[in-house]
């Protein structure tokens, strides 16, 4: 075996089984033929190019996320990532829609509603403009993802960059900023990995997200002194944690043939929310807020633990064979 062949075989070890056993020998042969056809000496001193490494890494990732020809477990992993992306981006889009509506209202551009009487002038600058662009981008991302458009993979990293941009400030401390970013990074990272296929069956259950958001946010809009617990309930991370606990309860009582991906998606999202909620702990808001955030953190952590155990057990029980209909 030449040094080059050895290097290609090491590279192909990235492929998951059963694809590795099926294709590694043949791919090595094709790589060697392609690289040493014009230059036989390359077999001694050559090594896989960066483009070859990226190409194999992309194939390995696709096969680990349930591309045709991958194992039943990889298909389950792919469904988990798809659910994390769908639930997360739809939640972000609902909040983006609310944010756009509030911006339009405060700037008096809604034809049927007069602007609220706020103390001082309503400001408009680059920060607000970026916010509006980001809201539009997130809504487009959710639509693309649910419809199965490949544009979602390109939009997700741009949205994450726009979320990170205003966070690069000296306060709060970098560790807290990093924790606040975890839920966004998990959701948008998943959206960047999802293959461009529509969600099947049609995910009508996603409509529960805007319903839950409206129910959670409404009490905080009632005029008068805002109660800390109600203010906390309007926080996307807090009602997200409660929503995931509810979703786990629904999954537990529903009779389903296949368990695993849905539970794991709830676990991933709940763990991300728990870390994000920790970044809220030092916030000094109306009485009761802090207690509500700590309670939501514990709820999210508990949900992540239970859903993670149930999901892991279900996925471990799956065979490592190739999925028949992937």
């Amino acid at each position: 075996m030449s040094p080059l062949e050895e290097r290609y075989r090491r590279l192909l070890a990235w492929l998951p089984e059963p694809a590795r056993s099926r294709w590694a020998d043949e791919m090595t042969e094709t790589f060697l033929e392609a690289t040493t056809d014009d230059d036989p000496e390359y077999a001694e001193f050559g090594s896989p190019s960066l483009a070859d490494r990226l190409d194999v890494a992309r194939l390995a990732l696709r096969l680990r996320l349930g591309a045709p020809g991958s194992s039943v477990r990889a298909v389950a992993a792919g469904r988990t990532v798809r659910l994390v992306a769908a639930i997360g981006t739809v939640s972000l889009a609902v909040h983006a829609l609310i944010s756009l509506a509030l911006t339009a209202w405060t700037h008096d551009v809604l034809p049927f509603l007069t602007a609220p009487d706020l103390p001082g002038a309503v400001s408009w600058g680059p920060g607000q403009a970026i916010g509006v662009v980001l809201d539009g981008l997130v809504i487009a991302l959710a639509v693309c993802l649910v419809r199965g458009s490949g544009a979602a993979r390109a939009l997700a990293p741009v949205a994450l960059a726009l979320y990170v941009l205003p966070m690069a400030q000296p306060h709060p401390p970098p560790a807290l900023q990093a924790l606040a970013l975890v839920p966004l990074a998990v959701v948008l990272g998943a959206a960047a990995l999802v293959p461009p296929e529509p969600l099947r069956p049609r995910p009508w259950w996603l409509l529960a997200i805007p319903a839950l958001t409206l129910v959670a946010a409404t009490p905080a809009t009632v005029p008068g002194e805002v109660n800390g617990w109600l203010a906390a309930l309007a926080d996307p991370l807090v009602h997200g944690a409660l929503g995931l606990a509810g979703a786990l309860a629904v999954l537990a009582v529903r009779r389903r043939a296949a368990r695993g991906p849905a539970e794991l998606a709830v676990a991933v999202l709940a763990a991300a929310l728990a870390l994000g909620l920790v970044s809220r702990w030092p916030w000094d808001v109306a009485g009761g807020y802090h207690s509500a955030v700590v309670a939501a953190t514990l709820t999210a952590a508990g949900t992540a633990a239970v859903a993670g155990i149930v999901g892991q057990r279900a996925v471990r029980a799956l065979p490592v064979t190739v999925a028949v209909d992937s």
Partner: peptide, 8 residues
């Protein structure tokens, strides 16, 4: 076509 793409 790159080799990884071809075998995918």
């Amino acid at each position: 076509l790159r080799v990884g793409t071809l075998y995918g």
